[in-house]
Write a protein that binds this DNA or RNA. Structure first.
Lengths: 129, 129
DNA sequence: ATAATAACAGTAACAATTACTATTTAGATT
DNA sequence: AATCTAAATAGTAATTGTTACTGTTATTAT
């Protein structure tokens, strides 16, 4: 049976309170502000559980480590080569693209992980060139 | 100045001779058949260099490790949940999708890493259900 | 209150990758 | 052909992200 734990709540709260996409280490550091002796293993376990239960989304970023996102609907990300941030992209036609890809290849596509690399809109605006 | 090395040639040849997408360890094992005392570090270094020079393509697969592909034009991959293979997808409209995404979000997209998860066409054919 | 066990902290183990160092070797220069 | 220089190497150590293990703590049903 699933029990309440302060540690899991803190982990989830950290994720919900940011638009960034922290990895386990960053979440661990943040969590220690609330629970100074929380264990890194606990953070990893809760992230896996929350991700397995669909409460959060996990994806591998360009740095190779797993990053987490409290927005669960799978959506493309942009790794900005200028500010190095990972930005959520709202692309309504991504499902169309997925379906079309499935039809074209004869595969059954259940999920996707789409990561773009380039300059995010903020960085594009702020600097000409 | 860039010099010839037998080790780099072997690594590249291994990649060019397969349609699979081996990771460093697999390439290392294969390379030892030609050069028994080749070092794992050498394999890693050459894979980075070849990837930096655009001779091969690197991408992270669902197992979290870097996989390599001698087909350099970036193209989507499918991780088959049935046979666990990583399959190249030939999707001609992927550039359209990328451009549309850039326009829609205001970002400048230079590259993409698109990974689908599901059942590859072979596995779909071979098993009803 | 008590008991059962989920979740924990802390640490060890692990796998993928990178860094380091002394040695070898490609290839340019004599 | 002998010599020189730095690119590349082999072998190993170190680092990093993650998982596994063990004894302890704490949630929640009774």
């Amino acid at each position: 049976m699933k029990r309440y734990s302060k540690q899991r709540e803190v982990v989830l709260e950290i994720l919900r309170s940011t638009k960034l996409h922290p990895n386990a280490t960053t979440i661990y550091e943040r969590a220690r502000e609330a629970i100074p002796n929380i264990s890194l293993g606990t953070v990893y376990r809760n992230l896996s559980e929350l991700s397995a239960s669909g409460d959060i989304l996990a994806f591998k970023a360009f740095d190779g480590s797993e990053h987490y996102d409290a927005t669960c609907e799978p959506h493309p990300h942009l790794c900005c080569t200028a500010c190095r941030q990972i930005v959520d992209l709202d692309i309504p036609f991504v499902d169309d693209f997925t379906k079309k890809s499935a039809n074209h290849t004869g595969a059954e596509i259940e999920n996707h992980n789409i990561v773009f690399y380039g300059k995010c809109s903020d960085c594009c605006k702020s600097k000409m060139q």
